[in-house]
Design a protein around this nucleic acid. Sequence first.
DNA 1: ATGTTGACTTGGA
DNA 2: GTCCAAGCCAACA
Length: 113
Amino acid sequence: MDRASFYEQVYQVVRLIPKGRVTSYGAIASYLGTKGSSRMVGYAMNGAGTISPKVPAHRVVNRNGLLTGKFHFSSLTAMQDLLEKEGIKVSDDKISDFKTHFWDPAIELDLER
DNA sequence: ATGTTGACTTGGA
DNA sequence: GTCCAAGCCAACA
Protein backbone atom coordinates (compact mmCIF):
# COMPACT_ATOMS: atom_id res chain seq x y z
CA MET A 1 0.00 0.00 0.00
CA ASP A 2 2.69 2.40 0.93
CA ARG A 3 4.37 1.75 -2.39
CA ALA A 4 1.23 2.80 -4.20
CA SER A 5 1.15 6.52 -4.76
CA PHE A 6 -1.75 8.52 -3.53
CA TYR A 7 -3.17 8.33 -7.01
CA GLU A 8 -2.98 4.56 -7.12
CA GLN A 9 -4.70 4.30 -3.79
CA VAL A 10 -7.52 6.43 -5.08
CA TYR A 11 -7.82 4.34 -8.21
CA GLN A 12 -8.10 1.15 -6.22
CA VAL A 13 -10.79 2.49 -3.93
CA VAL A 14 -12.81 3.85 -6.83
CA ARG A 15 -12.54 0.51 -8.59
CA LEU A 16 -14.04 -1.13 -5.51
CA ILE A 17 -17.16 0.97 -5.77
CA PRO A 18 -20.04 -1.44 -6.44
CA LYS A 19 -22.17 -0.92 -9.49
CA GLY A 20 -25.11 1.35 -8.85
CA ARG A 21 -23.33 3.10 -6.01
CA VAL A 22 -21.56 6.42 -5.73
CA THR A 23 -19.25 8.14 -3.30
CA SER A 24 -17.72 11.51 -2.70
CA TYR A 25 -14.13 12.67 -3.07
CA GLY A 26 -13.98 13.60 0.58
CA ALA A 27 -15.11 10.11 1.59
CA ILE A 28 -12.26 8.54 -0.35
CA ALA A 29 -9.77 11.06 0.92
CA SER A 30 -10.92 10.46 4.45
CA TYR A 31 -10.61 6.71 3.97
CA LEU A 32 -7.06 7.18 2.76
CA GLY A 33 -6.43 9.20 5.88
CA THR A 34 -5.90 12.46 4.08
CA LYS A 35 -9.16 14.28 4.34
CA GLY A 36 -7.51 17.53 3.39
CA SER A 37 -6.45 16.07 0.08
CA SER A 38 -10.01 15.77 -1.15
CA ARG A 39 -9.01 17.80 -4.20
CA MET A 40 -6.26 15.39 -4.99
CA VAL A 41 -8.78 12.58 -5.21
CA GLY A 42 -10.51 14.27 -8.07
CA TYR A 43 -7.25 15.42 -9.51
CA ALA A 44 -6.02 11.85 -9.46
CA MET A 45 -8.95 10.95 -11.63
CA ASN A 46 -7.32 12.88 -14.39
CA GLY A 47 -5.59 9.64 -15.21
CA ALA A 48 -8.70 7.54 -14.72
CA GLY A 49 -9.03 6.94 -18.43
CA THR A 50 -5.30 6.71 -19.00
CA ILE A 51 -4.56 3.91 -16.58
CA SER A 52 -5.50 0.25 -16.54
CA PRO A 53 -7.94 -1.01 -15.73
CA LYS A 54 -10.16 1.93 -16.31
CA VAL A 55 -11.52 3.62 -13.21
CA PRO A 56 -15.28 4.19 -12.87
CA ALA A 57 -14.81 7.85 -12.18
CA HIS A 58 -18.44 8.42 -13.00
CA ARG A 59 -19.27 6.85 -9.66
CA VAL A 60 -17.39 9.55 -7.84
CA VAL A 61 -19.03 12.90 -7.30
CA ASN A 62 -18.71 15.78 -4.91
CA ARG A 63 -20.41 15.91 -1.55
CA ASN A 64 -23.55 17.44 -3.09
CA GLY A 65 -23.94 14.50 -5.44
CA LEU A 66 -23.29 16.90 -8.29
CA LEU A 67 -21.44 15.63 -11.36
CA THR A 68 -18.66 18.14 -11.04
CA GLY A 69 -16.22 16.07 -13.05
CA LYS A 70 -18.45 15.44 -16.00
CA PHE A 71 -16.54 18.09 -17.92
CA HIS A 72 -13.51 15.85 -17.86
CA PHE A 73 -15.30 13.02 -19.59
CA SER A 74 -15.38 12.44 -23.29
CA SER A 75 -18.79 13.99 -23.43
CA LEU A 76 -20.77 16.06 -21.02
CA THR A 77 -23.50 13.42 -21.04
CA ALA A 78 -21.17 10.42 -20.76
CA MET A 79 -21.01 10.54 -17.00
CA GLN A 80 -24.72 10.99 -16.55
CA ASP A 81 -25.47 8.29 -19.06
CA LEU A 82 -23.19 5.82 -17.31
CA LEU A 83 -24.82 6.50 -13.97
CA GLU A 84 -28.29 6.07 -15.38
CA LYS A 85 -27.24 2.79 -16.95
CA GLU A 86 -26.27 1.57 -13.51
CA GLY A 87 -29.69 2.41 -12.15
CA ILE A 88 -28.79 5.78 -10.67
CA LYS A 89 -31.16 8.56 -11.51
CA VAL A 90 -29.54 11.82 -12.47
CA SER A 91 -31.40 15.04 -12.85
CA ASP A 92 -29.83 18.37 -13.70
CA ASP A 93 -26.29 16.97 -13.40
CA LYS A 94 -27.14 15.92 -9.87
CA ILE A 95 -27.73 12.43 -8.46
CA SER A 96 -31.23 11.76 -7.16
CA ASP A 97 -31.36 10.12 -3.74
CA PHE A 98 -27.63 10.61 -3.52
CA LYS A 99 -27.73 9.59 0.10
CA THR A 100 -29.42 6.33 -0.85
CA HIS A 101 -26.80 5.42 -3.46
CA PHE A 102 -23.95 6.70 -1.34
CA TRP A 103 -21.14 4.20 -0.73
CA ASP A 104 -18.69 5.01 2.01
CA PRO A 105 -15.38 3.12 1.77
CA ALA A 106 -14.60 4.00 5.35
CA ILE A 107 -17.57 1.85 6.32
CA GLU A 108 -18.07 -0.69 3.56
CA LEU A 109 -14.42 -1.62 3.20
CA ASP A 110 -13.79 -1.49 6.90
CA LEU A 111 -16.38 -4.20 7.49
CA GLU A 112 -14.55 -6.66 5.27
CA ARG A 113 -11.28 -5.94 6.95
C1' DA B 1 13.76 23.12 -2.94
C1' DT B 2 9.81 26.59 -4.11
C1' DG B 3 5.55 27.83 -6.33
C1' DT B 4 1.28 26.77 -8.78
C1' DT B 5 -2.66 24.04 -9.45
C1' DG B 6 -6.77 21.43 -8.53
C1' DA B 7 -13.09 16.36 -10.89
C1' DC B 8 -13.18 19.33 -2.84
C1' DT B 9 -14.88 20.62 1.89
C1' DT B 10 -16.27 23.47 5.50
C1' DG B 11 -17.45 27.60 7.82
C1' DG B 12 -19.07 32.26 8.12
C1' DA B 13 -22.23 36.25 6.38
C1' DG C 1 -31.87 28.51 1.96
C1' DT C 2 -27.70 30.81 -0.95
C1' DC C 3 -23.01 33.12 -1.79
C1' DC C 4 -18.04 34.16 -0.70
C1' DA C 5 -13.64 33.09 1.21
C1' DA C 6 -10.14 30.17 3.25
C1' DG C 7 -7.92 25.64 4.06
C1' DC C 8 -6.14 21.42 3.04
C1' DC C 9 -2.54 18.06 0.81
C1' DA C 10 -0.15 15.85 -3.10
C1' DA C 11 1.73 15.88 -7.77
C1' DC C 12 3.97 18.60 -11.46
C1' DA C 13 7.13 22.23 -13.70
